[in-house]
Design a protein around this nucleic acid. Structure first.
Length: 361
DNA sequence: GCCACCGGTGGC
DNA sequence: GCCACCGGTGGC
C-alpha cells in the first residue's frame, strides 16, 4: 500500500507506505506526529479520518531552527505585512506571519488576554530565554476541508468558532469574515515548525457570558497539570471551578436574572501535543502485594529485603496500591471515530524549552 | 494580606 | 489517564 499523504506538521507532502494509523491531525513540536492510539483518543480531535504514516515525517529534523517571532501589544496595531527574511520555501508572507506573544516583553504574563493576535511586525528573541510561563501566542483553527491552519484574529472570534465547531466545522471560507480573499488554495497561515508548543483545545466550549472572561493559564513544563482555566466575573472576581461559579451565581442573582447560566462555563483545558509536558503521576511498584503490608507474615519478611522495596511507612504504600487497584477497570472515554471533527489549536509560546524537550536552567 | 501558580487527591 | 476541586505557598 502506498499513497501520498500530507504532512500536516511541516506542510509538505511525502510518499508513504506501510500505513498503519487511522486519523489525521496532531501537530507535534518535534514533528513526531501521533505516537500511539492514546494520542488519537478523546483528547485529539480529528478533522477527518485519514490514513497517515505518522512515523515517517522527519522534515523538521532537516529544517533549521527558526527564531521565535514576537508581537507586542504596540506592534499589534501595525498590521502591515512583515517581510520574512527566512522565507526559503517560496511561500508567501502569510505563512510566515507567526504570532507569539512574549509576556516578558510587555510586562505581563497574560498574553492570551491581549488582542488581536494577528499580522505582527517581527523581532527575534533568543529561543532559550529566562523561565517564564508559556502564554497563548496564537489562536488557530484547522480547515475541515484542506486541513490548513488559519490564524484567528481575536480570542473572541476563536471562542465563537470553538463554541459551534462540531455542528459548524471551520473552513477557510469562514475566515473571509476577516480575510476576504482567503481560500483553501492559499498557503497555511501557520505551520507546525517545532519552535513552538502546541496544544489542542476542546471543541464546543460555550463562549463566556457577556462581560465575563475565560482565561487559560498554561503551567510550566514538568508540572502536575498542563493548564488552568479561570473565569473572571464582571466584578473582577476570579473563579476557578464550577463549584465556585455555582456559588457565585447563587450569591449574585443579578447575573442569573441577566441570563447567565452554569452551562455557559467550562473548565476544560487543552491538551499539550508535546509528550511528557506534564509530569506523570508516580505509579506504585508493580509487584507490591498489599497483603504483605497488612501484617507480619513470612511473605513480608522475605520481600522487604528485595530491591525495589522502600522503607516508606506501610500505610502510604498500602494506600497507593489500594488506589490503583480500585481504579483498575475504569473505562477511557473515547470520541467516536466515525464522527468528523474539526480541530482547533491553541498555539503556545515555548520560551524555555529545547527542541528535545529538556530544560535549560 | 493578596493572589497567581502549583501540587495533591479523590472520583471516574 | 483524565478531570475537577481546592489547599498551600512564594512573590508581590
Amino acid at each position: 500500500m502506498s499513497m501520498e499523504v500530507r504532512c500536516y506538521g511541516c506542510c509538505r507532502h511525502e510518499l508513504s507506505s506501510g500505513l498503519k494509523t487511522i486519523l489525521s491531525i496532531g501537530l507535534f513540536p518535534d514533528c513526531g506526529y501521533l505516537r500511539s492510539s492514546e494520542d488519537i483518543s478523546a483528547n485529539l480531535y480529528p478533522v477527518e479520518t485519514r490514513v497517515l504514516d505518522l512515523s515517517r515525517c522527519n522534515h523538521l529534523d532537516k529544517s533549521p531552527q527558526q527564531p521565535v517571532d514576537v508581537v507586542t501589544p504596540q506592534e499589534e496595531e501595525d498590521h502591515s505585512a512583515a517581510e520574512d527574511e527566512d522565507n526559503q520555501s517560496g511561500e508567501d508572507d502569510s505563512q510566515k506571519q507567526l504570532v507569539v506573544y512574549d509576556p516578558a516583553a510587555n510586562g505581563t504574563s497574560t498574553g492570551e488576554d491581549s488582542q488581536p493576535l494577528s499580522f505582527p511586525k517581527k523581532k527575534s528573541i533568543p529561543f532559550h530565554s529566562s523561565k517564564v510561563l508559556p502564554s497563548v501566542g496564537a489562536f488557530t483553527v484547522q480547515c475541515a476541508e484542506c486541513f490548513k491552519w488559519r490564524l484567528i484574529p481575536t480570542k473572541e472570534k476563536y471562542e465563537e468558532i470553538r463554541e459551534h465547531l462540531l455542528e459548524k466545522p471551520f473552513v477557510c471560507e469562514t475566515a473571509r469574515e476577516w480575510r476576504p480573499e482567503i481560500s483553501c488554495e492559499d498557503p497555511p497561515d501557520i505551520c507546525q515548525d517545532g519552535s513552538r508548543l502546541w496544544a489542542i483545545d476542546k471543541p464546543n466550549i460555550a463562549q463566556p457570558p457577556p462581560g465575563w472572561q475565560r482565561l487559560l493559564r498554561i503551567r510550566g513544563e514538568g508540572g502536575t497539570r498542563f493548564a488552568d482555566v479561570y473565569y473572571v466575573a464582571p466584578s473582577g472576581k476570579r473563579l476557578r471551578s464550577m463549584v465556585e461559579i455555582q456559588k457565585y451565581l447563587l450569591e449574585h442573582t443579578e447575573y442569573v436574572d441577566a441570563g447567565v447560566s452554569i452551562s455557559q462555563f467550562s473548565f476544560q483545558i487543552p491538551r499539550p501535543l508535546q509528550q511528557n509536558y506534564v509530569r506523570k503521576r508516580p505509579t506504585p511498584p508493580a509487584d507490591v502485594n498489599p497483603l504483605s503490608w497488612a501484617g507480619p507474615d513470612e511473605n513480608t519478611a522475605l520481600r522487604l529485603g528485595l530491591p525495589g522495596f522502600s522503607e516508606a511507612p506501610d500505610s502510604e504504600i498500602l494506600d497507593i496500591s489500594a488506589k490503583k487497584k480500585a481504579r483498575q477497570g475504569s473505562s477511557k472515554h473515547v470520541f467516536s471515530s466515525d464522527s468528523v471533527y474539526n480541530q482547533h489549536g491553541v498555539e503556545l509560546e515555548e520560551p524555555y524549552q529545547t527542541r528535545n524537550g529538556a530544560f535549560e536552567l
